[in-house]
């Protein structure tokens, strides 16, 4: 599996994905200037913009790198040679996934450094009322990466189901949108405002809440922006949720992929 991880990483770097990220990261340079427009919340806005830019880059990577990773191997017939080697399909899948996840971590380190530099610069120009909580910004970045790694697992699952890239790409976008809204929907149907809904709608919404990923659990942006402390048990729970959900999705993907006909 380590060979597969290494080959996947080489492919990502040689296809100049990283250079693309670095080019996009040039937008970071604009953040201090744009943050000045807020007049009084320069640091807060710089953190918001930097973290949002990180999220956008990871979302694009999840959809277009994660969603096309398996499809490209099958479409370009690379998989015929590789799966003819004494390697299980689940090892192949896990190797590819681990390669992408490792790339996300490396990217997060680089983008995290850019975030820190930008926020430091903005906060030096206009010192905030509350001190910047650097460790919470780092935590926020880390949990954001986890969220997008989980999204990549979902993209892999869609890739094992379909021979075209439409399902992996658009399915992943749909899950991203739905996963970001599940918590609000759940809270709404269990509030007094939700009493007007029929029991069937409530049950369906509750079922989807447990089935779809809950991405809002990974969102620590508000904590990072306003320096709010985080609950340790809450973080542990989210990590556990990430591990369980990702393992489940990847196991399902491996099961489907092991039955797939490589015609």
């Amino acid at each position: 599996m380590t060979s597969m991880i290494s080959v996947t990483l080489k492919g990502i770097f040689r296809d100049r994905v990283f250079q693309g990220i670095l080019m996009t990261a040039l937008i970071f340079l604009l953040i201090p200037t744009v943050s000045l427009l807020s007049m009084r919340q320069v640091t807060e806005l710089s953190i918001t913009l930097a973290l949002s830019l990180n999220s956008l880059i990871f979302l694009l990577l999840s959809v277009f790198l994660g969603g096309t990773m398996l499809w490209k191997d099958i479409e370009r017939r690379y998989s015929y040679g590789v799966l003819g080697l004494p390697m299980t399909r689940s090892s192949y899948l896990a190797g590819k996934f681990a390669g992408v996840a490792l790339f996300f971590l490396l990217t997060a380190i680089v983008l995290g450094a850019a975030t820190f530099v930008v926020v430091f610069f903005a906060s030096s120009l206009y010192p905030p009322e509350r001190p910047v909580q650097w460790e919470i910004i780092a935590l926020c970045l880390f949990f954001d990466v986890m969220k997008y790694v989980l999204l990549v697992a979902i993209a892999f699952l869609f890739s094992t189901l379909s021979t075209s890239f439409f399902l992996p790409v658009f399915g992943t976008i749909a899950i991203f949108l739905a996963g970001g809204a599940t918590q609000q929907v759940y809270d709404y149907i269990h509030s007094t405002a939700g009493d007007t809904l029929t029991p069937l709608v409530k049950q369906a919404a509750s079922g989807l809440y447990y089935l779809l990923p809950n991405f809002s659990a990974f969102d620590l942006k508000v904590n990072a922006i306003y320096g709010l402390s985080t609950s340790f048990s809450g973080l542990l729970l989210t990590i556990g949720y990430f591990l369980l959900y990702t393992t489940f999705i990847l196991s399902l993907a491996a099961l489907i992929f092991s039955r797939r006909e490589m015609r």
Partner: peptide
């Protein structure tokens, strides 16, 4: 079963960035 086999697929294609 593939541990002692060398397999050449038809019209092979390999990771072309390698």
């Amino acid at each position: 079963a593939r541990r002692s086999v060398g397999f050449l697929p038809e019209n092979p294609s390999f990771y072309d960035y390698l």
